[in-house]
């Protein structure tokens, strides 16, 4: 599991996650993810390379989203592969965590007033 920080601005942090968010995958990235997903900013995560997620990975996303929300920021996922998106939907996470089609949609959403 790999977490990469892409070119970012002072208002948007762009991250790329790739690999399987299983038990060992979450262990690999959770500390860095929690550190990067903070502050009064939009944290936009490219999920295109994520092949698996279960409740442990969802916990990591939910706790980052809660923290960002309380700090005036937000977490946005984009380019989520179908099987991963279905799992997020089944767990009811897409109701509290924005999942959009691609990077441009994520940028537009991040610019909207909350």
């Amino acid at each position: 599991m790999k977490l990469t920080q892409l070119e970012s601005t002072d208002r948007i942090t762009n991250l790329l996650l790739s690999g399987s968010l299983d038990i060992s995958g979450v262990k690999d990235v959770e500390m860095d993810f929690a550190r990067l997903a903070s502050g009064k900013r939009a944290v936009v995560v490219d999920f295109s390379g994520v092949t698996f997620i279960a409740s442990l990975g969802m916990r990591m996303l939910l706790s980052a989203a809660k923290k960002l929300d309380s700090e005036g920021g937000r977490l946005i996922l984009h380019s989520v592969p179908p099987l991963v998106e279905t799992a997020l939907e089944t767990a009811g996470l897409t109701m509290v965590l924005p999942v959009v089609k691609d990077a441009p949609d994520a940028i537009s959403l991040s610019q909207l007033q909350r």
Partner: peptide, 9 residues
């Protein structure tokens, strides 16, 4: 979001 828990998921 702030009240969501994942117990039982």
């Amino acid at each position: 979001l702030q009240h969501r828990q994942l117990g039982g998921i």
